[in-house]
Design a protein around this nucleic acid. Sequence first.
DNA 1: ATTGAAATGAACAGGTCTGTTCACTATCCT
DNA 2: AGGATAGTGAACAGACCTGTTCATTTCAAT
Lengths: 180, 180
Amino acid sequence: MATPRKQVLIDTAYRLFNQHGYHATGIDRILADSGVSKATLYKHFKSKEELILEVLQQRHEQLYAMLERAMQENKSSHPALALFDALNNWFQSEHFYGCNFIKAGGEYPQIQDPIHSFSAWHKNSVSQLLSRYLPENQQYLSNAFCLLADGAIIAAQIRGQKDAAKQAKIFAQQLLTAHI
Amino acid sequence: MATPRKQVLIDTAYRLFNQHGYHATGIDRILADSGVSKATLYKHFKSKEELILEVLQQRHEQLYAMLERAMQENKSSHPALALFDALNNWFQSEHFYGCNFIKAGGEYPQIQDPIHSFSAWHKNSVSQLLSRYLPENQQYLSNAFCLLADGAIIAAQIRGQKDAAKQAKIFAQQLLTAHI
DNA sequence: ATTGAAATGAACAGGTCTGTTCACTATCCT
DNA sequence: AGGATAGTGAACAGACCTGTTCATTTCAAT
């Protein structure tokens, strides 16, 4: 069963946005790479912005599910630390181009922009997910883990520091044990 | 004494890049806002890319000098912690739109791109500056502080969490005291 | 007052951008 | 067989993009 055209567009756009950025990726390039006609794109999405939002929406669902699974499986000493194992796997993969939401929030800096506010919402929901896997008396560490995680993403993306997640995990561990 | 045209262009471009991003800011908008003619721009800069690089260069010098001064003045309990006080001041200012270098590295994702590699170089030089203000036996904390700092920048920029630097400072303090 | 450097304004070239429209085709369901 | 659904290809509009060119103006230093 062939992939529906709409999904082909989303997948292609996702890849191109990652490789080249949102503004730098034109509609025509997405169409050429996906082999879909322009009329079809504008039947499924009323604008480029809507396509971007759907790409981010799907990416959010993937990521959220992946993190939740990782923390439930709990291979690390503490469930919340599994976040950094997941990050590490991501950084090692060929398809790591930084965080979509950080980059989208950077390219659309106005907080009232739907793309920016969706990115903010995503980051908030990850923070809340994290706090569900921290004990009652260590809720405040959710913020620390978010800082370390986003910092690691930046280090890996900008500086090419692919071991950033491993380092972040060590520091997160130290914070956990510092206050038991 | 009037500001030279070249500097007017750099200042205007800096503001517009911050407010709207690099791709989203066209040359014509920079010219209109600065009141400089197009011929003059292309006498001082051979391309838009060169203008971006000079904007980043000046920003790097400002930032680096500011951080070095903050750590030398050393109003916090530990010189390296002054980084977070500086970040906090920045986040509170009206002119905070996130880190130029993170956003530039996001909009120009190819590591061989001069804009991306300059951003990487900037982040590395801040990391080295930091390690100069950490004792011999705590050098590894330079990485931790970088992660916390960049994470705080993202939290403030994307999520509007303006107290991110204050939180980051607390966690940095805990890491410092955890290993004395 | 003259010269020379610096900047201007305006037009132009050649692309690229998003988004629209329309006649036509392929496919599946009944 | 007939009709609905989905997609194609191509052309078009109108705006915006970077970068070039050149005749003209401004202005400070000599």
